[in-house]
Design a protein around this nucleic acid. Structure first.
Length: 480
RNA sequence: CGGGGUGUGGCUCAGCUUGGUAGAGCGCUUGGUUCGGGACCAAGAGGCCGGAGGUUCAAAUCCUCUCACUCCGACCA
């Protein structure tokens, strides 16, 4: 093939050259999503949506296993409800979209398109909750929310995104805290075990916490370019909203009490994380456990006697997996190899006349691009083992990458230098002062991603900014 | 919200300086030969040049305004 032709076909920018373009190229070329006619709003195409469905199904299963039920609340929230909790409005007001007209007439009260549903859900909870015997309330909804964003990027930040929001009520503070942690753990387990993305988990600083929360917990992932991505948050909302919305019940002692409240959410942003953690210059690399197609079978010389039959036979043998036989006529095998590689299919099986004669096939792993001959007798166990290897290897690779991109610093100058030579996480001590937090952000561009549960002491335990004794180690990074 | 970039068949772009109402490659369709890393030949289809004004006998091209997308920074799942 000629050079020009290579370039024409390749079209995915190298990530070393321009990471942002690489990212959008991958999304467009692999047909995960496309831009819509409305600025900041994207269309999720079937291949991208299939990934979301797989993520969603895993989480949904665990939500239900832990006693949660799904429900659905309206898209529109009256302004009077949104403004009930002061911190909350203040946090969200700048990015709310408003509906002012209905059926051509101006509305008496404008309605906001939910940026999140705490307010409308709480207004209903106050109607429903009467007695301690009804607690806990364990509900969740899958929906989309709208936040009018200035700068948007597919999956990472769009004005509308798909997500899940859980909203629970509990009798005691301890139960609410336990729920908050339980959900964060579920978030982390699916992210790590299914998406193969290692997460740093911990608590958000006061500055970074959810508007109206008592405490926010987060899982943070590190992308290939050294930027962090907040990937899921779980909030202990205390009684902030239950008081603001008059949610009261008669407790075990016959007194009127406010319950304790949690909410937790994660979104299609996770798809951005999968792209940016595992992807390479050939395109997507999908972990087997969330790949819409786990195995693609590419027949070679498919017009020849018996080749297609054999391909379908293999598909049938492997029916417990998501298998596609690419029997498209008029495309060369080489073309198909490249296409499916770009789309990140974990395992490709090539089967042609020579293989059939030798009673074998060829496996090609997406993560290592390694080619191996496999006897057809062993195919089932070989597939199981290979997919598991790929899944494990992706996690390990991502973890190595994160560790390689994680440094420590004891003062701001050192932090700047480290971020410059090796962008990624910086572990440092912090005195818990908002002023220091702002200063660090201003001078380095990096924010406190979280105060991790797994603490350690860096250097002599002095705040990276002001040098006073500090009892918290934090992860800092530039973030999406 | 500030700074840059780009809008021409499905995609990537040329044409614009020096106006004369469109071109290439890829993709697509049909037929044939191919088929183990992005095959080849032949014949086709497809565009009022982002939009609105203006200048002109004549505008993709010049002028004004506008819109959209995109990238980089400040704020955010």
């Amino acid at each position: 093939m000629t050079k020009e032709k290579q370039q024409n076909i390749q079209a995915i920018t190298n990530m070393e050259e321009d990471f942002a373009r690489w990212y959008t190229d991958v999304i467009m070329k692999t047909e995960l999503a496309d831009y819509s006619p409305v600025k900041g709003f994207m269309v999720i195409r079937p291949y991208g949506f299939a990934i979301w469905e797989n993520i969603k199904n895993e989480y949904d299963k665990l939500f239900k296993q832990t006693g949660h039920e799904n429900m659905y609340f309206p898209l529109l929230i009256p302004e009077s409800l949104l403004v009930r909790e002061a911190e909350h409005v203040e946090g969200f007001a700048p990015e709310v979209a408003w509906v002012t007209h209905g059926g051509g007439a101006e509305l008496a009260e404008r309605l906001c398109i939910r940026p999140t549903s705490e307010t409308i859900i709480c207004s209903m909870y106050s109607k429903w909750l009467q007695t301690w015997r009804q607690l806990p309330f364990l509900y969740n909804q899958w929906c989309s929310v709208v936040r009018w964003e200035k700068t948007t990027r597919p999956f990472l930040r769009t004005s509308e995104f798909l997500w899940q929001e859980g909203h629970t009520l509990h009798e005691t503070e301890a139960e609410a805290q336990a729920e908050t942690m339980q959900m964060l753990n579920i978030y982390r387990s699916v992210a790590e075990e299914y998406m193969a993305i290692p997460m740093v988990v911990g608590q958000k600083s006061e500055k970074e916490k959810f508007a109206g929360a008592h405490a926010t917990y987060t899982m943070e992932a590190l992308m290939h370019d050294g930027q962090a991505l907040q990937s899921g948050t779980s909030h202990n909302l205390g009684q902030h909203f239950t008081k603001a919305f008059d949610i009261m019940y008669t407790d075990r002692d016959g007194k009127r009490s406010y319950p304790y409240h949690t909410s937790w959410g994660l979104s299609t942003r996770l798809i951005g994380a999968i792209i940016m953690v595992h992807g390479d210059n050939s395109g997507l690399v999908l972990p087997p456990k969330i790949a819409p197609i786990q195995i693609v079978i590419v027949p070679i010389a498919q017009h020849k006697e018996g080749v297609l039959d054999k391909a379908y036979e293999l598909k049938n043998i492997l029916k417990e997996y998501k298998v596609k036989v690419d029997d498209a006529d008029g495309y060369s095998p080489g073309w198909k190899f490249s296409q499916w590689e770009m789309k990140g299919v974990p395992l490709r099986i090539e089967i042609g006349p020579k293989d059939i004669e030798a009673d074998k096939c060829v496996f090609v792993r997406r993560d290592t691009k390694e080619k191996i001959d496999i006897s057809l007798d062993d195919i089932q166990s070989a597939v199981a083992k290979t997919l598991e290897d790929i899944q494990n290897n992706l996690y390990k690779r991502a973890l190595d990458m994160r560790e390689q991109k994680t440094s420590t610093a004891v003062n701001i100058e050192e932090m700047k230098a480290k971020l410059k030579e090796n962008p990624g996480f910086i572990k440092a001590m912090w005195c818990n002062d908002r002023h220091c937090e702002d200063t660090i952000k201003e001078q380095t561009g990096a924010s406190i991603r979280c105060i991790p549960f797994e603490q350690e002491i860096i250097g002599e335990g002095k705040c990276i900014c002001c040098g006073s004794p500090a009892d918290k180690m934090v992860y800092l990074a530039r973030a999406y």
